[in-house]
Design a protein around this nucleic acid. Structure first.
Ligand SMILES: Nc1nc2c(ncn2[C@H]2C[C@H](O)[C@@H](COP(=O)(O)OP(=O)(O)OP(=O)(O)O)O2)c(=O)[nH]1
Ligand SMILES: [Mg+2]
Ligand SMILES: [Mg+2]
Ligand SMILES: [Zn+2]
Length: 588
DNA sequence: GCCGTTTTCGGCCCGACTGTTTTCAGTCG
C-alpha cells in the first residue's frame, strides 16, 4: 500500500494558494494547516479513516475529512477541480516567489487580464503593470528580480550543510564586530530540521550599534542581493560555494533575549499556537516579551523559560517546536526527557578499509575512543553482494573477526566489537549464512538493491532471522536525490517490536533514516532505536549530533536508544532475540 | 474551514520593512 499522504497534502497546499488568491485568507489557513497535519501523519490517512480517528484530529473538520475520503475513493477532489478553473495555473506557482503575493497577482489578473507567466513578464517589461495605481517602478523591478530567484525559492539544503555555513558566518560576524554581545543561529537550524530553507541569525547588541552591524552584514563579500535592510532586520542572499542561500538577521536588546530567541526559533505554527494560548490567558506574546493584554505591562522575556512559564508551560526543547502536540504536553508538564548527545556510549555502524571505509580499524578505534570517549564501536563492513564497496565474503569476514580479536588483545581493551552490514537479498535472505552471523557481536541488515519494488517483505523476512539486530537506513531515502523505496513502515515497526529487532536512525546527512516522524511512531510502539553514523571516514563520526537531534525531534528518550546503554545491556538485547527465535548463543 | 468549560458565531499571532501613500496595504519573518 503506497502512502498517499504526500499527494493529498500537496493538493491541500494548492487549494490554500487558490483561496489566498481568491482573498479568503482564513479558509486558506485552514487548508494550509490541514496540509501540514497530513504531511506529519505517520500512518497512511486511509488507516485513520478505517479506525475513525480522522475525525478527531484537531484541524481536520467535516469538510476537509470528506474531501480526504473523496480522494481516497475516487482519486479526485471535485472542489479542487472547480477551484483550479478560477485561477490561472501559472499563478499557483508564481505566488511562492518573493514579491508575488496573492493581492498583487489578483490585481494583475483582474485588471490586465493576464493569466500566464509569459504575459506577466511582458507586462512587467512594457510598463502596463507599472501604470496600475499602487504599483511603481521599484515594485516592477523587485518583481523582475523575484522571477530570477525561481530556483532559490524551491531547493532546501541539508541540515549538516546549513550547520557548516552557520558556524562560518557566526565566527565571521563575532570576530569582526565586537559590538555583538551575543549571537545565535535560530530558525529551522536550531530546531535541527532535516532540511533548511534559509538561515536565521539572532544578534544581541546595543541600540546605537545596530546601524554598524547591519551595514557590515549587508556588505559581506558573499552577498549577491540585499532583499530588505532595516535597523532591526535585514535579509540578504549569499553565495556559498556557488550556491545561493537567503540569510535573515535580526538585532535585539539584551533584555529581549528570551522572547527574541523564542520567536525566531519558531516554528511558525508553534509560535502561532503559543500566542493563541497566551491570548486566551489575557496575555500577548511578541518577539520582545510577554505582556498583560490590558495594561501592556511586561511580565517576561529575558529568558526563553520565562516566556513559556508565563503562559503556564514548561520550557520546550527547540527540536519539539513543530506544533505536533508539544504545547499541550508542556501545559500538562508532560514533556519527555529527551535523549542527549552525552548519553551516547558507542557507534554501531562503521566501515573500515576491509570494505569501503578509508581508515584502518585500529586508527578508527584510537581516534573514536580519544575524541568521543565512547565505551565501544562496532565495525560493520559490507557483505559480498556489495562488490563496488569491496564487500566481504565468508572467508574474509572470518579474517576480520580474527583481526579485531588480535587488535583488542594488543591494545589491552575490548573497545572494538565486530559486526557486519549484511545485504538483504531480493528474496529477503541474507548475504551471509547463519553460521557466520552467529559469530558476530552485532548485525546490521540493509536493503541496497531493487528500490522500485515494495520491500516490506524483504525487511520483514530479515527481521525474522535471530541474528539480525537492527535494520540499517530502513526506508532507503536519500534527501533531495531519491525517495524512500515503497515500504510499509507500520508493518516493519510492528515486526521490529515482535522480534526484538531495533531500527536504525542513520545519521548520514543525506539519509537521516528513519526520519523524525517514524522515530516518534517507533518510540510510541516501544521499538528500540540505534543512532549510527555509518562512518566511512573519521570526519563522519561527527554526524552523531544530527542523528541524536532527529531522535529528539521524534520525542525519543534515553531508554529508547540502544547505544546509550552499556555493552553488557546490548549483549542482553542480542541474546534475548537469539533465545526467542532459536538462535545459537555466543560464548561470553 | 476550524474551533469552543468564559463562545456553536465570530473570531483566527504579531510586527518589520517597502513602496507608494498623503496614512497604509502588501508581503514577509
Ligand atoms: N509569530 C510568527 N513567527 C514567524 C512567522 N513566520 C516566521 N516566523 C518565525 C518562526 C520561524 O521559525 C522563524 C524563521 O522563519 P523562516 O521562514 O526562516 O522559517 P524556518 O527557519 O522555521 O524554516 P526554513 O527552513 O527557513 O524554511 O521566524 C509568522 O508568521 N509568525
Ligand atoms: Mg529559516
Ligand atoms: Mg528566515
Ligand atoms: Zn553502512
Amino acid at each position: 500500500m503506497y502512502n498517499i499522504n504526500k499527494d493529498l497534502a500537496n493538493i491541500f497546499k494548492k487549494m490554500a494558494a487558490i483561496y489566498e488568491f481568491l482573498d479568503d485568507r482564513f479558509r486558506a489557513m485552514a487548508y494550509q494547516r490541514a496540509a501540514h497535519i497530513i504531511e506529519d501523519l505517520p500512518d497512511d490517512v486511509r488507516n485513520y479513516i478505517l479506525t475513525g480517528k480522522l475525525y478527531s484530529i484537531k484541524g481536520i473538520g467535516p469538510s476537509i475529512a470528506s474531501k480526504i475520503e473523496e480522494y481516497v475513493n475516487t482519486g479526485k477532489i471535485q472542489k479542487y477541480e472547480e477551484l483550479k478553473k478560477k485561477v490561472p495555473e501559472d499563478f499557483i506557482e508564481l505566488v511562492d516567489l518573493p514579491g508575488f503575493g496573492p493581492k498583487t497577482l489578483k490585481r494583475i489578473h483582474d485588471e490586465l487580464g493576464i493569466s500566464t507567466k509569459e504575459e506577466l513578464i511582458k507586462a512587467l517589461k512594457d510598463g502596463r503593470i507599472e501604470q496600475l495605481p499602487g504599483f511603481g517602478p521599484k515594485k516592477v523591478e523587485n518583481m523582475l528580480k523575484g522571477l530570477q530567484m525561481y530556483e532559490l525559492s524551491k531547493r532546501r539544503i541539508l541540515l549538516w550543510e546549513a550547520l557548516e555555513i552557520s558556524r562560518y558566518l557566526v565566527d565571521k560576524l563575532k570576530k569582526n564586530l565586537k559590538e555583538i554581545k551575543d549571537i545565535e543561529v535560530v530558525g529551522s537550524v536550531r530546531r535541527r530540521k532535516e532540511t533548511i530553507g534559509d538561515l536565521d541569525i539572532l544578534v544581541i547588541a546595543e541600540d546605537k550599534d545596530r546601524t554598524k552591524i547591519m551595514d557590515y552584514f549587508t556588505s559581506l563579500p558573499e552577498i549577491s542581493q540585499i532583499l530588505v535592510k532595516g535597523p532591526k532586520k535585514s535579509s540578504v542572499v549569499m553565495k556559498f560555494e556557488g550556491k545561493e542561500r537567503q540569510v535573515d538577521l535580526r538585532i535585539f536588546r539584551k533584555d529581549e533575549w528570551g522572547a527574541a530567541l523564542q520567536y525566531f526559533t519558531g516554528s511558525k505554527q508553534h509560535n502561532v499556537h503559543l500566542r493563541e494560548i497566551a491570548k486566551e490567558k489575557g496575555l500577548k506574546i511578541n518577539e520582545y516579551g510577554v505582556y498583560k493584554a490590558d495594561t501592556e505591562e511586561k511580565i517576561a522575556g529575558e529568558t526563553e523559560e520565562s516566556v513559556y512559564n508565563a503562559v503556564g508551560m514548561d520550557w520546550i526543547p527547540p527540536e519539539l517546536r513543530e506544533d505536533r502536540g508539544e504545547i499541550e504536553a508542556a501545559l500538562q508538564h508532560k514533556l519527555p526527557e529527551l535523549v542527549e548527545l552525552k548519553d551516547i556510549k558507542g557507534d554501531m555502524h562503521v566501515h573500515s578499509t576491509w570494505s569501503d571505509g578509508v581508515n584502518e580499524i585500529k586508527d578508527i578505534a584510537e581516534f573514536v575512543k580519544k575524541r568521543y570517549g565512547y565505551e565501544y564501536i562496532v565495525i560493520t563492513d559490507h557483505s559480498k553482494s556489495q562488490r563496488v564497496a569491496r564487500g566481504l565474503d565468508e572467508e574474509r569476514i572470518l579474517k576480520e573477526i580474527e583481526e579485531v580479536k588480535i587488535l583488542n588483545k594488543m591494545m589491552g581493551w575490548d573497545f572494538i566489537k565486530i559486526g557486519t552490514e549484511v545485504d538483504i537479498l531480493l528474496d529477503g535472505s541474507l548475504d551471509f549464512p547463519d553460521e557466520i552471523l552467529s559469530k558476530l557481536d552485532w548485525v546490521v541488515a540493509s536493503v541496497h538493491s531493487h528500490f522500485n519494488r515494495d520491500n516490506t517483505d524483504r525487511i520483514i523476512k530479515a527481521m525474522e532471522n535471530p541474528y539480525v539486530n537492527v535494520i540499517g537506513h530502513p526506508t532507503g531515502r536519500l534527501i533531495g536525490l531519491r525517495e524512500a523505496y515503497p515500504v510499509d513502515m507500520d508493518a516493519v515497526i510492528k515486526k521490529a517490536k515482535e522480534t526484538g529487532t531495533a531500527l536504525e536512525i542513520n545519521a548520514q546527512p543525506r539519509r537521516l533514516d528513519i526520519n523524525d516522524i517514524w522515530i516518534r511512531k517507533a518510540v510510541e510502539e516501544g521499538v528500540k532505536l540505534v543512532i549510527s553514523t555509518d562512518s566511512h571516514n573519521l570526519g563522519n563520526f561527527a554526524f552523531m549530533e544530527i542523528g541524536v537531534a532527529q531522535a529528539r525531534r521524534g520525542w525519543a528518550t534515553k531508554k529508547d536508544i540502544l547505544n546509550t546503554k552499556s555493552w553488557k545491556e546490548i549483549q542482553k538485547f542480542v541474546e534475548d532475540k537469539r533465545k526467542r527465535l532459536g538462535g545459537v548463543l555466543q560464548k561470553r
